[in-house]
Write a protein that binds this DNA or RNA. Structure first.
Length: 263
DNA sequence: ATTGTGGCCTGCCCGC
DNA sequence: TGCGGGCAGGCCACAA
C-alpha cells in the first residue's frame, strides 16, 4: 500500500509535471473530491494554471499552483490502493494489497496538460482523494525528518498504544500499518506498549530506527520491502530469533510482532 | 481535548 | 466452474 516511501516516489514522478500548462482537469468520480470546496471550484483552479512545486507531507502529496491560481495548493491522497501515473508511467511498480491491472476505469482524477500529457490518480477503491488547499497544519512532523525532540513530544504523556500513537497522522505524519510493524520490530518495542511509558533510551532507539527504516525502504523502493513483511502471515516467524510471530489488533489495525524480543 | 469505534470503498482469495 | 463471505487499512464522522 502507499505509505511514505511510495508517496516520495510519486513526488519525484510529479516533478516531471512542473511548469507544464494545464489544459483542464477531470474527475472520474465525484466522490474522489474531498474537503469543503466544490468539485467545480477545484477543477476551475487548475484550468490554465501549472504546477510549480511538488512537496510531500507525510502521506499527503502537495502540488503548488502557479498563476492564475498562485498561492493555492492541490492535495493528493492515495489511500491504500492509489497510484500516480505521469504520461503513462507509474510512480511505483508494485503495490501490495492493490491490483496491478491496467484499468482506466479506475482513473479517478486526471490532469490534462496542453502538451497532450496527463497526470493521473488511479485508485480502484476510492480510498484516496483530491483536495484543493488541504489543511496541512493538522499534520504532525514528517516522519522522515522528525527530530528526536519532536518524536518525544508526540509520544509522551499518553496511555494510548505506542503503535496507535505512531500512526496518528496528527502526531507523526507518514507512518502506516506496515511500516509501523517494521519499525517497532527493528526497535524491539511491543506495539501495545503505552506510548508514554518509553524510557529516554527507548525513545532515542525508536527515533533512530524510524528514520533509518524509512530511508532504507525509500532506497529499496517500497513499504512492502521490509524484512518483516514476508512473515506477516499465519505461522510466520521472527527473522531475528525464529520465534513465531503474534497477530493482534492494536489501535484497530492488524499487527504482527515478536513476543520474544519486542518488549 | 482525547480516545476508541464503525463505515466507507472494492479487488482478490479461499472454501464450498 | 461459479459463487459468496471475509479481508485488507487510510481516513473521517461520530460518540463518550
Amino acid at each position: 500500500m502507499p505509505e511514505l516511501p511510495e508517496i516520495e516516489a510519486y513526488r519525484q514522478l510529479a516533478e516531471g509535471a512542473l511548469q507544464r500548462p494545464i489544459d483542464r482537469a477531470v474527475l472520474g468520480d465525484r466522490r474522489f473530491a474531498r474537503g469543503h470546496g466544490s468539485p467545480r471550484d477545484l477543477l476551475a483552479a487548475l484550468a490554465g494554471a501549472s504546477f510549480t512545486r511538488a512537496r510531500r507531507h507525510g502521506k499527503l502529496l502537495v502540488l503548488d499552483l502557479g498563476a492564475p491560481s498562485e498561492g493555492r495548493h492541490l492535495g493528493l491522497r492515495f489511500g491504500m490502493t492509489g497510484r500516480l501515473l505521469l504520461d503513462g508511467r507509474a510512480g511505483v511498480e508494485r503495490l501490495v494489497y492493490a491490483s496491478e491491472r491496467d484499468v482506466s476505469a479506475w482513473d479517478r482524477f486526471t490532469v490534462r496538460f496542453e502538451d497532450g500529457g496527463r497526470l493521473v490518480v488511479r485508485d480502484p477503491r476510492l480510498l484516496g482523494g483530491v483536495e484543493l488547499d488541504p489543511d496541512e497544519s493538522v499534520l504532525g512532523p514528517d516522519a522522515l525528518s522528525i527530530t528526536a525532540a519532536q518524536l518525544r513530544r508526540a509520544l509522551e504523556h499518553s496511555t494510548v498504544a505506542l503503535k496507535a500513537r505512531l500512526m496518528d497522522q496528527h502526531r507523526v505524519a507518514g507512518v502506516g500499518n506496515l511500516i509501523a510493524d517494521e519499525v517497532l520490530w527493528r526497535a524491539s518495542l511491543a506495539p501495545h506498549r503505552r506510548s508514554g511509558s518509553l524510557t529516554e533510551a527507548e525513545q532515542r532507539r525508536l527515533h533512530r530506527h524510524l528514520r533509518q527504516t524509512l530511508d532504507l525502504l525509500i532506497h529499496r523502493g517500497g513499504s512492502h520491502l521490509g524484512d518483516l513483511m514476508a512473515e506477516r502471515v499465519p505461522g510466520g516467524r521472527c527473522p531475528r530469533d525464529g520465534t513465531e510471530l503474534v497477530r493482534s489488533t492494536v489501535g484497530g489495525r492488524t499487527s504482527w510482532w515478536c513476543p520474544h524480543h519486542q518488549r
